[in-house]
Design a binder for these strands. Structure first.
Lengths: 343, 343
DNA sequence: TTGTATGCGTTATCAG
DNA sequence: CTGATAACGCATACAA
């Protein structure tokens, strides 16, 4: 059954010989863009031969010759964060219909891994990068930008750099979350922010402070999480509860941080939303099936990815295009983790 | 700030000139495996020049010359299924420490996409494939296998083909699930199977039938889901409820199908586990936070990925190695979606 | 319409 | 230890 001695893959030369033409002719026949230069009959013969041999063009040779890779790199901090797979899909849906392939790399939130992966991507001649790992201060991205690497940021931005970016309208989302809680009657609302080293953490933090002030509420019930994770959300929540009292609602930096709050509620026998309300951010999958279903701010993940991909294509086609920033609208999704405060 | 005219990437030639040596010497100096052929002094000079220029070897040229890509393809049906990201991480953790890069592709459960993506991977000279999309009948995989493509299956297998595979011990897992329900006193236990065209669907289906028979229970309360999805799980559950009565417990083919059951319970005002118990399969993330927390069979995702990667490395190193099948142990995780039947 | 010749950037073989 | 040279497979400018 199994072929124990796999033959070397057929080359263009093999195809040409089988079709009785020269490699140049075979090359033209196989490439849709040059096929019309040769007779239909010859083209058919070549294509048949290629089919019969199971010919696959060697993309190393092609890439070396054309210095094009038809490949784009997608840099993700952590694929196990449910936020990212839909973004990946959005990116792929656009890029693939345009003939590009997407190479996904996971940095695991580690600078060294990020550097290594991006180097690897560059050595593979990717034609552009979509980067979801930006921090406000990001020497590596700054360096790449200065080197003229074609790049679009997604979800997060770098400070003071004119790099094209697609993000959600976080400020509006946070304002909507705070308004929802204020309307329910909450007066002591806390924020468990994401890392302030990221633009999303920073923007949501600022938006939170502005929003609570606008409602005449205290703006100092804030704890920063070390990472965008459930564990760090729980740590921050414990911290908050040990240092303040009477807080009846929490705006979490994202859904994972909100899940960390759930863990602490379970530990301490608190009932959500009866004892305390929580709002997440992102609307990652399955939140509607949580106990309780989590109120959150929905970000259009797929669109985020798709728009970033479109923007990258634009940048590839038109390298001198000025950088734009696209802000996609978000929406509050009210579920059962928010209710009026107990009185 | 931004470089408007990005220079062409420096080549080995540029490095060699800067260091005042021949390209061959530069090549040897930069490659750790040949560096000892070169005087320490020259090597240092070359490495410094490379560093200064920001030299990145062109992997097309290298791949063309060496016909090695240091790349492995990972074929995933659907990255948004939370089962897969941990598997990806497991694969990466092993392969990367061995100097390989992993190219992840998403087939979206579509044959044509799968074929196109795998063709693309092969044209990029991947040294092996880890495939998570197998069906029992799978002409494409069979063809690849016959062509001698180095390949390891993960999670699912192909029928009658000796392809190396790493999977969870599904049969034991299903038996444990049924035993748990029987011990609770359930006598009418249903199974919402995954697609029987997949080995996982088939094996779990068979194991379910054997298990209920072993307990002297009816073995005909079975509905097959069209896909491993929440929506198809819900459809199957509605189907089951319309055609049978008195069933007090469900063994779902996987966690997503179990989530579909939750949707139907919500529709019909059924309380889980009071009115009906459910068990999932896989123990995907966040199940402990569901309403109710889902009892399930935990599969070691990360290990699955890591073991498949190790097996692939073995296959690459030793092509004539006979195919083995590795069955990783699973364990029942009892949460709150299972309880004694109402009486 | 087809064939010829060349070179992409790298590594391997062979001399020196 | 280092340099010269060839070759990997393909696409393209040029010639016919």
């Amino acid at each position: 059954m199994t072929n124990p001695n796999p033959l070397p893959a057929p080359t263009l030369r093999d195809v040409a010989e089988a079709a009785g033409v020269h490699t140049a002719t075979a090359s033209r026949a196989l490439n849709p863009k040059t096929r019309r230069q040769i007779s239909a009959e010859t083209a058919r013969r070549v294509m048949r031969a290629a089919e019969a041999l199971g010919y696959q063009p060697n993309s190393f040779a092609r890439g070396l010759k054309t210095s094009r890779s038809s490949t784009v790199g997608l840099v993700i901090p952590d694929l196990t964060n449910p936020l990212f797979p839909p973004i990946v899909r959005g990116v792929e849906s656009v890029l693939e219909s345009d003939g590009y392939n997407v190479w996904i790399v996971n940095t695991d939130n580690d600078d060294n891994r990020e550097r290594a992966k991006i180097e690897s991507l560059r050595s593979r001649q990717v034609e552009g990068l979509i980067v979801a790992t930006a921090r406000l201060e990001h020497p590596l991205l700054q360096q790449l930008h200065e080197q003229g690497v074609t790049m679009v940021l997604i979800n997060r931005q770098v400070e003071n750099l004119r790099i094209p970016a697609v993000t959600g309208d976080d400020a509006t989302g946070v304002a909507a979350a705070v308004r929802h809680l204020a309307d329910l009657g909450h007066t002591r609302i806390a924020h468990l922010s994401g890392p302030l080293s990221t633009s999303t953490g920073h923007v949501r933090f600022q938006a939170f402070r502005h929003a609570v002030r606008d409602h005449g509420l205290p703006d100092d019930l804030i704890v920063e999480c070390a990472h965008w994770s459930e564990a760090d959300g729980a740590t921050a929540m414990r911290d908050l509860m040990s240092r303040t009292t009477g807080c009846t609602a929490v705006v979490a930096g994202n859904d994972l941080i909100a899940l960390g709050c759930y863990d602490v509620f379970a530990e301490r026998g608190l009932s959500c939303p009866r004892d305390i309300s929580v709002i997440g951010f992102n609307d990652m999958p399955f939140l509607d099936k949580l106990r309780p279903p989590l109120t959150t701010v929905a970000v259009p993940h797929h669109e985020l990815g798709a728009e970033a991909a479109r923007m990258l294509l634009d940048c590839i086609d038109e390298p001198d295009r000025p950088a734009r920033s696209l802000l996609l609208p978000v929406s509050l999704v009210v579920r059962d983790s928010t209710a009026p405060p107990r009185r």
